[in-house]
Design a protein around this nucleic acid. Structure first.
Lengths: 158, 158
DNA sequence: AAGTTGTTGTTGAACCGTAAACTTCTTTGC
DNA sequence: GCAAAGAAGTTTACGGTTCAACAACAACTT
């Protein structure tokens, strides 16, 4: 037989919270995407620009960038290709590894990020930060860190 | 001039939490999708089956269903059409409103849900419920309710 | 040093979601 | 009653994501 033990169903509270989570995430995404569309960007492209802007020389190896923005390599290739035609990024060969490709943000990309960032941050505030109680917001951070396995201070403060 | 006041940037903590959120959500989605793929479903299809199974006669108006699973009407039409070819749902005319279409779950759809549900619930536990501290999990629920504007008990308990 | 294995990044096809136009029907207001 | 406005679903075209196969290179292995 396969390992089909009795399923540990969620209790009523857990199920309510789980559905609240699904609803909340969907709502947040809707708002952020809608807002970024005014700048001709989606969340994936925006994140690419953010991570490039935070890196030395505004550049990052494709595989490194893919990990940071949680996109598959294939998806990143396609997305960066599109952004390249828009003049937001460009690509060059990696000097240290001839397999590698380095994506770098253009001046135009940088300018678009500077333009879009304030509105985006305001969206994040309106959609999440402002409506949520600060203690709950901190708990949200701990919860998501636990999900991704970030060590986090589980013990007592000293 | 446009209303470009000084942007209220996120402070270091808020930004860390926001990124934890993005990472956590992505991780949870990955796991749930990967698990459901074993049953030939994605999260959108699974949710359709769940909501149909909870409704009288295992049936729901398309627009009603669309609201519950947070899909656009267009998307739902496509998804249900696909599921219909798989034999998981079927469609019939709505008796009370001749514009309406009623989606209903087939026996096959019901059987697939019964088969997939335990594994899915286990995924939700492993990805979210189990790793997160119970108090933080409750706070997560309150936070997401605040995001979607669910009234919620903000005051003191009586 | 040659062969194996793993990594990096791209390609093209299939698939899915989005957006806008459109049909049919209901509801509203005069 | 009738025209206008609105709602329910579908359709089509387009764009983006996924998936599997692939080419080029690096890193081990012996």
């Amino acid at each position: 037989m396969t390992t089909t033990l009795q399923p540990r169903w969620l209790d009523a509270d857990q199920q309510r919270i789980w559905r609240s989570f699904l609803n909340g995430v969907a709502r947040i995404n809707e708002r952020l995407e809608a807002e970024l569309r005014c700048f001709g960007l989606d969340l994936g492209e925006y994140e690419i620009l953010v991570h490039l802007s935070e890196s030395p020389d505004r550049s990052l190896r494709m595989s490194d960038l893919a990990d940071r923005v949680r996109q598959s390599r294939s998806r990143l290739t396609h997305t960066v290709a599109r952004m390249e035609t828009k003049g937001l990024v460009s690509r060059m060969a990696c000097p240290s590894d001839r397999r590698g490709v380095i994506a770098l943000m253009t001046t135009r990309g940088s300018e678009l990020l500077v333009e879009a960032a304030p509105a985006h941050v305001e969206s994040v505030r309106r959609a999440l930060v402002d409506p949520v109680d600060p203690d709950d917001f901190a708990a949200l951070g701990r919860a998501m860190d636990a999900v991704t396995g970030v060590p986090g201070a589980t013990g007592v403060q000293d």
